[in-house]
């Protein structure tokens, strides 16, 4: 997909970057529409759809009943007819209600029809513990794996505000169904965003920081943790590279391989539960394709394997910690 580099940037929250992406795409293409719970009159629970209802009206910004399975199905049906629906999950946790539509319809109709039909839709929403604290066990889960496991879907997650805008625009223009996972912890965080019309590719990982001693590999909200850990490691004389996977399906391993070729060590970092998670796939591919470049076992730092607890101290403990990443990186260097 062609990309352009914006000339001017402006600081804004990730939800504002996403909002810009939606607005620009809706202005550009009348087939783009938004539907979901509280996306319209309420203005979007996480502000991503703010102002769209008053600008584009109820036909293009549709408030739905709390019927996740069926409004995802409505999105699939409209996509089959040539519209480009962007379906919002208020929290990605609620997509569990819609898994039949996501797995059996959105992901598979193109293949099952022998390529005759296309489903150009985006399913988007926040995942993980944030933006606000205290989301607890049914509202702050990181279910990335469930989507990334399913052939037929593209699954992407931006790690910063700039990518959030460019990737959402690319997702809307993509003819494949895209699951666009917004890192909840970053929703309200500020960063530089291009002011004009630009796209960020949906299938390319990116090296965020060069380093020579160890490669920290993350995606979504965990990239910020990796960058923070890299700065701390630098103080103790360790040069850490950071790779942002950006897309989990397809998984672009080339930048990680290139970095590991230089560092010979890697730590995979994610908010998701560790067992069977996307990190396990990344490690498996490193074993297969980068084995002879590795001088230490690849280590992992993940969300703790419990439901997300409520108490502030337990909630904090349950997330991957910068100190854990620093410690794991040092361990690979022993």
């Amino acid at each position: 997909m062609a990309t352009t580099t914006p000339t001017k940037t402006k600081k804004m929250a990730m939800h504002e970057a996403l909002n810009q992406a939606l607005r620009e795409e809706m202005l550009r293409d009348p087939q783009v529409l938004v539907l979901g719970e509280e996306v319209g009159l309420y203005n979007g629970v996480h502000y991503v759809t703010r102002g769209l209802y008053s600008e584009f009206g109820p036909e293009r910004v549709m408030d739905t009943p709390i019927s996740e399975e069926s409004f995802v199905g409505v999105g699939v049906g409209m996509a089959l007819m040539g519209y480009r629906p962007v379906v919002e999950m208020m929290r990605m946790d609620f997509s569990l209600r819609a898994m039949d539509q996501i797995y059996n319809h959105m992901a598979k109709i193109h293949y099952m029809s022998g390529g005759d039909l296309k489903v150009p839709m985006v399913l988007r929403g926040p995942e993980g513990p944030g933006p606000n604290p205290g989301l607890t066990a049914q509202h702050g889960q990181q279910l990335t794996l469930l989507f990334a496991h399913c052939p037929g879907l593209r699954v992407v997650t931006p790690s910063n505000q700039y990518d959030a805008k460019g990737m959402l625009k690319a997702a809307i223009r993509c003819d494949d169904p895209v699951v666009f996972l917004e890192p909840g912890p970053l929703n309200n965080k500020q960063g530089d965003v291009g002011e004009d019309d630009y796209l960020v590719p949906l299938d390319q990982a990116e090296i965020r920081r060069e380093g020579t001693d160890v490669t920290l590999i993350g995606y979504g909200a965990s990239v910020a943790l990796c960058l923070q850990a890299a700065r701390e490691l630098e103080r103790s004389g360790v040069s850490a590279a950071v790779v942002d996977m950006r897309s989990l399906r397809p998984l672009d391993m080339a930048p990680a391989y290139a970095s590991v070729e230089r560092t010979n060590r890697a730590v995979v970092v994610e908010y998701a539960w560790q067992s069977y998670g996307p990190g396990a796939e990344i490690v498996a591919r490193l074993m297969r394709d980068a084995f002879w470049n590795l001088e230490a076992p690849v280590l992992r730092v993940s969300g703790k394997e419990t439901p997300l607890p409520y108490a502030a101290n337990l909630e904090e403990l349950s997330k991957p910690q910068v100190e854990e990443i620093v410690s794991a990186a040092q361990q690979t260097l022993k």
Binding site: G73, V74, V76, G77, M78, A79, L80, H105
Partner: peptide, 18 residues
């Protein structure tokens, strides 16, 4: 063509809306 009982009903509703 849908292998899931009731699986196409919401899809059809989206087609109708389109």
């Amino acid at each position: 063509g849908d292998g899931i009982v009731g699986g196409g009903i919401s899809v059809a509703t989206g087609v109708g809306l389109a």
